[in-house]
Amino acid sequence: MARPPRFDTDQLLDAAVRLAAEGGPAAVTMAAVAQAVGAPSGSVYHRFSGRTTLLAEVWLRTVERFQEGYFAALTDASPPSGGAGGPGPDPARAAARAAARHVVVWSRAHRDEATLLLYGAQDFGRAEWSEEHIRRADSGNARVFASIGGLAADLGAADERGRDRVVLALIDLPLSLVRRHLRAGEPLPPHAEDLAEECTAALLR
């Protein structure tokens, strides 16, 4: 019977996430990942054909994990429990508040991953990614923005100004709250989730 691999893909990507959070994308190399887990370099090359593939996979795994929860919040019509301002009768506004809150909740629970996402796909070598990696990235982004577009329509955002307001409320605003603390090396304050939700609700009122 063949022995199971000692170092699996997720273990290697977890190490890459930590390296990126501590030193940025430049810190994520095949040798650094191998050293971080105590693996021979061959174990890393066995799972990733090269650094470009490694960078693509660590970015995509991180952003896809974030998007799953964000997409669920956007498409969940039930009002959030225990959020600032209490449950409201409008499912679209409840979903918007839940989505903004998710940004902070997820970032608090996954600090290294959230720090990684302060960068962009271009910082992780998107220009050199394979067609499959680019397809995965574009597909995930399209899925989320289609949901935001549908929510904007439900909120009555019929013109460009209104749609920009929704994007600001659901993406830019909660991300700016997270970014400020992560870049300062500070923990997110205990009121961050409520504050993100309050501000999103106020902007969409």
Rank of each mutant, 00 (worst) to 15 (best):
A16N: 10
A20N: 05
A21I: 02
E22H: 12
E22A: 15
G24Q: 02
G24P: 00
P25F: 00
A27F: 00
V28A: 08
M30V: 15
M30Q: 09
M30E: 15
V33M: 04
V33Y: 11
V37H: 10
A39L: 08
S41P: 05
V44P: 02
Y45M: 12
Y45K: 08
H46F: 06
F48P: 11
F48G: 11
E57R: 15
W59Q: 01
W59C: 12
V63L: 13
R65F: 14
Q67K: 08
E68P: 08
G69K: 09
A72N: 14
A73C: 11
S78F: 09
P79D: 12
P79R: 15
G82C: 09
G83Y: 09
G83M: 07
G85T: 04
G86Y: 06
G86A: 13
G88C: 06
G88M: 06
P89C: 04
P89T: 12
D90L: 02
R93N: 07
A94R: 09
A94S: 10
A94K: 05
A96M: 06
R97L: 00
A98Q: 05
V103F: 07
V105P: 02
W106E: 00
S107P: 09
R108C: 00
H110T: 03
R111I: 03
D112G: 07
E113Y: 06
T115A: 12
L116P: 00
L116C: 02
L116N: 04
L117T: 01
L118I: 01
L118C: 08
Y119V: 07
G120R: 15
G120E: 12
A121C: 07
A121P: 14
Q122K: 11
R126C: 04
A127Y: 02
E128D: 14
W129G: 03
W129D: 10
E131V: 07
H133C: 05
R136W: 06
A137F: 13
A137V: 05
A137K: 08
D138G: 09
S139F: 08
